[in-house]
Amino acid sequence: MSENGTFKPVIVGFLCNWCSYRAADLAGTSRMGYPATLRDIRIMCTGRLDPTFVLRALEKGADGVLIMGCHPGQCHYQEGNYKAIRRFALLKRTLRQFGIEEERVQLHWASAAEGVEFAKTVAKMTEEITALGPLEWSRNWPNEDPHIYAEEAAHE
């Protein structure tokens, strides 16, 4: 989405309830500024992240998707983030086939104490996506029903 010609990316965030959502809360309570590019959605655990969600966000116009969870070994549900790592690897392959740049979908960790890291991650990703420019899914894949793609990719 552009305003006066300057591109401001929209990044959809999927934050796990226990670590990274709280890291974002901490960034707030400690007033650590970061660009207003992230629109975040709370999920209980990164293990809940259905790859469809990522594709849906891109399809609806997001320029990037940021998935954040607890550090490996620290998942509130023991190993949900390990499941997320595996699904993420598959998802990345799918995205590559779509021709979507790596930087657009990222997986990071932040513990509930890492408000600073959280803010830094958002800032860094914003820079990267700004450099790439808009994704414009609907213009690049105009004739297909991307939702079908999304569903298929999820079940590959």
């Binding site: 707030g28 007033r31 660009p35 207003a36």
Partner: peptide, 23 residues
Amino acid sequence: IREHASWVHPDDQDGATSKAKAL
């Protein structure tokens, strides 16, 4: 819209407002 918007985008009122709308 507090921890995740107003408190983290104090210098970007438009950005914070847009984000609040999205949320």
